[in-house]
């Protein structure tokens, strides 16, 4: 367990959080948050290798969340991934340009593909 990378998944849908955890629990150390605020709190308290976030959330959207992370931790990982059912192209483009968004994955996700992308992003980030 100690060697597994830590992945933070943020989504307002409880079922998505649960399914994400159940799907990837064998490969990664999965930490979930039901909102961006909760996610920020986790980022402040523990080391996270990859952030995966939903885009459409109440209060703070995925892109806004990525901006906050970028503002607060400009020089350090984690790398960021986005998973969403739908997002406006402009918003996503902004996140790619400015907030170190690594990939955008459309819901419903393919578990194998998503796992591959997560590992890829960790490798890219740490140069492994």
């Amino acid at each position: 367990m100690e060697n597994k990378p830590s992945i933070l998944y943020v989504d307002d849908e409880e079922i998505n959080l649960r399914l994400f955890k159940l799907t990837f629990r064998r490969d990664f150390n999965i930490i979930t948050a039901a909102s961006a605020e909760e996610g920020m709190h986790i980022l402040e308290t523990q080391k996270i290798d990859v952030v995966v976030t939903d885009q459409r959330m109440p209060e703070i959207t995925g892109v806004e969340f990525l901006k906050k992370i970028n503002d607060k931790f400009p020089d350090i990982p984690p790398n960021r991934l986005m998973v969403s059912g739908y997002a406006h192209d402009d918003d996503i483009e902004e996140a790619f340009q400015n907030y170190r968004l690594y990939k955008f994955v459309q819901k419903p996700w393919n578990a194998e593909n998503l796992k591959k992308i997560i590992i890829e992003s960790i490798h890219d980030n740490y140069g492994k």
Partner: peptide, 26 residues
């Protein structure tokens, strides 16, 4: 509506999709 509907449909479909994946692993 598509914006909402796409998200709205893709979320429950994700339950099915991810769920089936998870089931397979289990």
């Amino acid at each position: 509506l598509t914006a909402g509907i796409a998200h709205e449909v893709n979320n429950p479909i994700n339950f099915v999709y991810a769920g089936v994946n998870s089931l397979k692993k289990d």
